[in-house]
Amino acid sequence: MNIFRLFGDLSHLAAIAILLLKIWKTRSCAGVSGKTQLLFAVCFITRYIDLFLHFVSLYNTEKVMKLIYISASVFTCYLIFFKFKATYDGNHDSMRAEFLIVPAAGLACLINTKFDAIEILWTFSIYLEAVAILPQLFLISKTGEAETITSHYLFAQGSYRALYILNWIYRYHYESHVDTIAIVAGVVQTILYCDFFYLYITKVVKGQKIVLPA
């Protein structure tokens, strides 16, 4: 464990918590893409499938973190699609999730390190996570704005994988550890946030709201 991965995981936890708080406090999921949250839930379940296969006692924080990620993302989907369904902006959350899931699944079968079920599920989860934020960014471009709290969520969510890139550089240098698939997908994932990061740093930090040129 290194400082970059630690802060990456903390940033990821913060993002999940910020989104849950936003939906719970405002009792509304306006401006939140339900599809992105569904894709994240799929990512966690396919990536941590080992938790369900051979359930080992929660002896370390990693297992607890995995369970937190899975339960929090499923609970977030429950809030969006059931509890606060009336506030779900289905019209603007219109990016076809199939266009992300099918290519990720296909690519996972073509480019992986081992052709076995668990490895392919893990690879699918890595590829899907790289593009899972697209419906959320698409929704913001359609509505032309993002609530400040949603911007903070996106900033934390984008920072998590950016910090993981630093973690991979660190591990390459000190542990000669290389996970090409995760690195390439992580770089793509972080690049997708670039224009948002620019807007966040130039606007939200100064207290302004993000309004995209309609």
């Binding site: 973190m65 390190t113 490895e119 996970d179």
Partner: peptide, 10 residues
């Protein structure tokens, strides 16, 4: 060295 086998990251 590819060390994918040990999935030690979240």
């Amino acid at each position: 060295k590819e060390t994918n086998a040990a999935k030690d990251e979240l």
